[in-house]
């Protein structure tokens, strides 16, 4: 399984009901179903990903996250997961509120724009950072709302969202001493477990 999903699954209780926003090929939901008796649904808009979910027998609903979660009842899921999509939605703050309405807890992962490589790239070249991990140019990127860990936590404080757990990891999803000591500079990906 993808390394970030390996970490996330530990935060999802066995037998729970999960909504996975931008579920990709359904890997996480299929693993949770087979190993932790988890039931749930994935939301996805990519055709190939939807077909992959169907082939795995994962419940997948074709739904655009930018149109909200209005069709899901409040507190209808134990956990709402969204990996690597927060930076790509039109209204990250509203979606976060929606996730917290629908799920009792939420797990989010997103790239940290405050990582030292981004800072160095921008400071030394004066250009928007590009890397193997985030290869897009500014005009064709799906990532329209980059933030740093500090930015995200400021939003959480402002909206009274509790951060239950936080993990800063590098691109291989290792979490060493360095990213624990100085996450906003040394962590590349943030994995947050939040609730109201």
């Amino acid at each position: 399984m993808r390394a970030d999903l390996e970490i996330i699954q530990e935060w999802i209780p066995a037998g729970s009901r999960v909504l996975d926003l931008g579920c990709g090929n359904g890997e996480l939901l299929a693993w949770l179903r087979d190993n932790k008796r988890v039931s749930g649904y994935g939301l996805e808009i990519d055709q190939a990903n939807i077909a992959a979910c169907l082939s795995k027998g994962v419940n997948v609903i074709e739904q655009d996250l930018d149109k909200g979660l209005g069709n899901f009842a409040s507190d209808s899921f134990d956990v709402v997961v969204m990996t690597q999509a927060l930076q790509a939605v039109h209204y990250p703050d509203r979606l976060l509120e929606e996730m917290l309405r629908v799920g009792r807890t939420c797990i989010l992962t997103f790239p940290n724009f405050g990582h030292w490589r981004c800072r160095l790239y921008l400071a030394s070249r004066g250009e928007m950072p590009r890397s193997e991990f985030l290869p897009y140019t500014w005009y064709n990127t799906p990532n329209i709302h980059f933030c740093t860990f500090r930015d995200f936590e400021a939003l959480c404080r402002e909206r009274r969202v509790r951060v239950l757990q936080r993990l800063a990891v590098d691109r291989e999803h290792r979490h060493g001493l360095a990213s624990r000591l100085w996450p906003n500079l040394l962590g590349e990906i943030g994995i947050y477990h939040v609730s109201r």
Binding site: R17, Y41, N59, I61, E62
Partner: peptide
């Protein structure tokens, strides 16, 4: 179709939906 999908989700059924 989404009315049916939403009802099935509310009822906790296995459902997939393609538009």
């Amino acid at each position: 179709s989404r009315e049916i999908v939403d009802a099935l989700i509310a009822a906790g059924k296995n459902v997939s939906y393609l538009e």
